[in-house]
Design a protein around this nucleic acid. Structure first.
Length: 404
RNA sequence: GGGGAGAUACCAAAGCGGCCAACUGGGGCAGACUGUAAAUCUGUUGUCUUACGACUUCGUAGGUUCGAAUCCUGCUCUCCCCA
């Protein structure tokens, strides 16, 4: 096999990338790789701390996929060891270290999800516990002599926590070193990471240099802004779109992304060909409504297929735009002729977390039967055999109550 | 090692013996509006109860009191200053 031209490769590699340090070295590595027909070793380390992957994670995983498609060797490091330290990057508090059991379990769910983006057959999987685990205390001491305290505390996340009188545990300083050691061990040519990983990635370069190796190129991808349009996509901000989410949720959530982000999402999280991006950009500006529906469709298609994407689009139009009960609403059967309290019925459906919450929604007009708002908390219904009543609880929960 | 400060609901932060299920902001939820599950405005926000009310909740374990988130003691954790 042979690699595409350096120019072609570079165009794909640079798509969406914020910074390549140093870009010239990347070009050199690509040239050499092509000339010797030898793939570059591209490394990504992940912490199996949160098993639910979302589109934010997909930005980097997609970049990895692009390297795979170009023919390079892509190495995914499960941070089995580093997860037990906890990456302090961007954190305002110490991360709780995980046990080995948790790490193994999380790692598996991570891999299962990552396979939806990466080409499993071309993936090299490793666990940094294999080489970090056996290091003894002296090894750690030697390693930690490579970095100064001053360098550590000039980092934003640490200095902020320091100023705010928040706890910083000593072990958190060891994290970048552990990650950098991965690069030394694997002799990586390129390491991917979010912009927030810059410090950690650069440590890898330094440690490789100390070891007499060629230094890795650091490729930084932007942090995807979440559906709220302000903070980075993250589970803890609840502004994320999970890659395991149901098609309908995925579609709806994607539509809630602010218009300004339509193009960014296309560029970073979809498989739309790079050459088609300019046309997309124009559409996003001129016709944001349809461009966003295209985006939602594309995202659902990527993870659930064409059929589901169509269905999700229909579902959204039916429920949100036309405010009708969807075809796939769950059914709840009750004996006919029996007087049922609506409160209890809703409790059965699981659409509301507590009766107090249900009553609140009722008072506020958030609950309806056959399009009629029910505000009486004592409302009862009696079904006839075969009768179907459409129930709506809040904005998104639809059900059919049926008499048997 | 010595001295000081602190731990409140999803988060931040008031309260400092009864009027506290606990001010306020964020978040969440609902309504209106919208191309949108966006923005904005309004309402709402422990659990159970038709309601009266009952129960659990203010780091943790005890204690004082008719009554404690508020006072006392032990414990755990965090921050600051000094060494």
């Amino acid at each position: 096999m042979s690699f595409p031209s350096v120019e072609e490769q570079l165009a794909i590699i640079k798509r969406g990338a914020v910074e390549i340090v140093p870009e010239q070295e990347l070009i050199e590595k690509l040239k050499k790789s092509k000339k010797e027909n030898k793939p570059l070793r591209v490394k990504l380390g992940v912490d199996p701390t949160r098993p639910d992957l979302h589109l934010g994670h997909s930005v980097i995983l997609r970049k990895m996929r692009q390297f795979q498609d170009l023919g390079h060797e892509v190495i995914l490091i499960i941070g089995g060891f580093t997860a037990m330290i906890g990456d302090p990057t961007g954190q305002n508090k110490t991360r709780p270290p995980l046990t080995i059991e948790e790490v193994n379990e999380n790692a598996q769910t991570y891999i299962d999800q990552a396979k939806k983006i990466l080409d499993e057959d071309k993936l090299t999987l490793t666990n940094n516990n294999d080489w970090l685990g056996p290091m003894d205390f002296m090894d750690v001491v030697r390693l930690s002599s490579k970095l100064t305290v001053a360098r550590m505390i000039e980092r934003d996340d640490f200095s902020k926590r320091f100023e705010n009188n928040e706890a910083i545990s000593l072990h958190e300083f060891l994290y970048p070193l552990a990650q950098g050691q991965d690069s030394v061990y694997l002799k990586s040519d390129i390491e991917l990471g979010g912009t927030d990983q810059k410090f950690n990635l650069l440590v890898g370069r330094q440690l490789q240099k100390d070891d007499g190796q060629d230094q890795q190129v650091c490729l930084m991808m932007p942090l995807l802004v979440g559906t709220d349009g302000s903070a980075k996509m993250s589970k803890s901000y609840d502004n994320y779109i999970g890659i395991d989410e149901a098609p309908n949720d995925m579609y709806g959530k994607t539509l809630s992304v602010p218009d300004e982000l339509i193009y960014t999402y296309f560029e970073l999280v979809t498989d739309i060909a790079t050459e088609d991006l300019p046309a997309i950009k124009e559409k996003a500006e001129k016709d944001p409504r349809n461009a966003k529906h295209d985006l939602a469709y594309t995202v659902v298609r990527m993870y659930h297929g064409e059929e589901s994407a169509k269905a999700a689009k229909d579902h959204f139009e039916q429920t949100v735009i036309n405010k009708q009960v969807p075809d796939d609403a769950p059914e709840f059967e009750y004996n006919s002729g029996e007087e049922l309290r609506l409160l209890d019925v809703i409790s059965d459906t699981g659409f509301s977390p507590s009766n107090g919450e249900t009553k609140r929604m009722m008072k506020q007009g958030g609950i309806s039967l056959d399009d009629e708002k029910i505000k009486d908390i004592n409302h009862t219904i009696t079904l006839e055999s075969g009768q179907e009543v459409a129930l709506k609880v809040g904005k998104r929960n639809f059900g059919i109550i049926k008499g048997k």
